[in-house]
Write a protein that binds this DNA or RNA. Sequence first.
DNA 1: CTGTTAGCGCTTTCAT
DNA 2: ATGAAAGCGCTAACAG
Lengths: 371, 371
Amino acid sequence: MLEHSCIKININFSFMHKKIRIIDIAKMAGVSKGTVDRVMHNRGNVSDSARIAIEKVLEKVNYKPNIHVSAISLKSRYKIIVTTPEVSPGAYWESIHNGIRHALEEYENVRVELQVFTYNQYDVYSCRETYEKIAAFEMDALIIGPTFNEETVNLCKKMDEREIPYIFVDSAIEDTSPLAFFSADHYVCGYMMAKLITSIIPDHANIAIFQAVRTGDRSANSTILRKKGFTDYLEKNRCTNLILSIPFSVTAPEDNEMYLSRLFRSQRDIPAIVVLNSRGYFIANYLATNHIKGVKMVCMDLTTANIKALKKGQIDYLIGQEPEYQGFYAMKTLLEYLIFKKTVTKKNYVQLDILTRENIDFYKNFNNIMY
Amino acid sequence: MLEHSCIKININFSFMHKKIRIIDIAKMAGVSKGTVDRVMHNRGNVSDSARIAIEKVLEKVNYKPNIHVSAISLKSRYKIIVTTPEVSPGAYWESIHNGIRHALEEYENVRVELQVFTYNQYDVYSCRETYEKIAAFEMDALIIGPTFNEETVNLCKKMDEREIPYIFVDSAIEDTSPLAFFSADHYVCGYMMAKLITSIIPDHANIAIFQAVRTGDRSANSTILRKKGFTDYLEKNRCTNLILSIPFSVTAPEDNEMYLSRLFRSQRDIPAIVVLNSRGYFIANYLATNHIKGVKMVCMDLTTANIKALKKGQIDYLIGQEPEYQGFYAMKTLLEYLIFKKTVTKKNYVQLDILTRENIDFYKNFNNIMY
DNA sequence: CTGTTAGCGCTTTCAT
DNA sequence: ATGAAAGCGCTAACAG
């Protein structure tokens, strides 16, 4: 089981491992570098005989082009559009955009023109309008951070017709054919939130779930899935907690006072609280302002405000869904697809990180991202 | 608070951002590329006037060399030694070695000769012997995965004399002067384990802590720290749980049956279990074999065996400490220090990931590592 | 001391 | 259709 106590490994030194280059396969196939490049990039203008010879060599050897060297000699330009809900500082969507930007920095030699369109995620009409604008543009690819199902399906249909590849971040929408998506499994997310909250409250405690009110009366895709997971967990585990669904408004915050005071007045025992979107800090602040103590909270997303509430002990568990990772890999995958025709993995579920006030200080928003 | 709904950003396209190259600063300083390279790498042979001119330019412009392009034109070779406890498949130290290997892959163009020395982490004499062997070698740098304090201090002293830089992974040792370390905060780790286990057991339940027996009778550095954090949490929170310290042997597994059966026979109620090293699966398997059910467990490290036990529901919480990340960054930092004289951050605490059977499937051992 | 030049591995253009 | 050659940004060896 245990290995010997001294292993010597030579890297890039050993005779067997000698890194294989494009000129090597050219020689092996009896052609020139140019021809090899032509078949590798499907540029055409290659005789069958040459192509077959090269393909045969490629099968034998494990050629891995050095993408960074590729990038510096690349001439082509790409136009990529990104559309997401509006970005506010320290909040969820900013992280996704940061990830996207970091990917562009990694491929600093690649010429990409980026265009960002944001919409109001609490207003389906705003989304519709923005999507229509986007559909009129020329582009090589599209990254979508979706909120509303129907609107997104419409946009994607248009992209499909124009054969423009698109990638989802945050959440994948059914009945579309994206190149890939990078998202949490929202169902499992809700399921896990139920497990966490029930593990720290008495069996009989009520649980209040907060959900955002939206103009046009449609729920966000991810919230729907999370809620399903949440209730499924309780059902499966025969939890007897009473669930109170509480609306709350981001656009008209003055209404929330009413919702909240009504909730707390109606309850004999203080309920536990689960917030299925990233606005947990909002409730935490309400509780603090009104000196309501001892409320257990499980919330979503490592926004600046949520982290603050977590550190203060107002929030007990915070679930992270690696937004930077999502943005980074969405863009990276897109570029490698466009440039190198790299095959892409379609379904990409990100980690669901559990943060407490103990481990939050070590959580790396972006630095944990290598490669 | 919310931004306007359409932002247009051009990357690598805009007139202001034109990526600055080494030839650009050469022109601005009125010298040649070669001279610029000389001052940037402290190669000497540069007149004061030229140096000052270049330095002035460098202050003004934000020059960021393209390290991947650098790497391909690099000629120097580096000899790096890695020493860690023995590696077994699917276990903790394998992950650290994987991370190290991945860093070398990222810098595939850099010529590094790697030499790995492992020792038996349960035997201080093995460690001492291995370290003596290492001290006799020539090398440009050293990566140490330490176990025993005194032995490591001795090795480091020798390295200090020879001015060989070294980096710690897994755990930093006091009274040494490493270039950097990449490690979890083991104290907080133990602290958090205490919080997690107490959150899922009754107030009165006993908690058994397992610690490895070692030849030479020295505890591993990390375990000592974790235990301190663990007991401090209980004390601070006035927990009344009785703590049972149970030894267990990796080298003589036949003894463990005795330790374990003695433990469970002595207890009226089944205690909760915390394992401060990565051998949690071992206890989990004992419980399964002996049909002992309902034991709550919190353990360390995402080894194959532990993950299996987590998925089966035998372990409730598993704490991860990003071993791949540690290895990757240790090697990456070392290379960038050796090659580019990049300044290094000395203290690097990694994330403490909380895994449950819900989120384990999304946990990425290495893929979450970009950059 | 310093400018020039020859690579590194890859893409792309240009003759053939 | 294909080989040769230029060029990407950087380092290192080579003449002066």
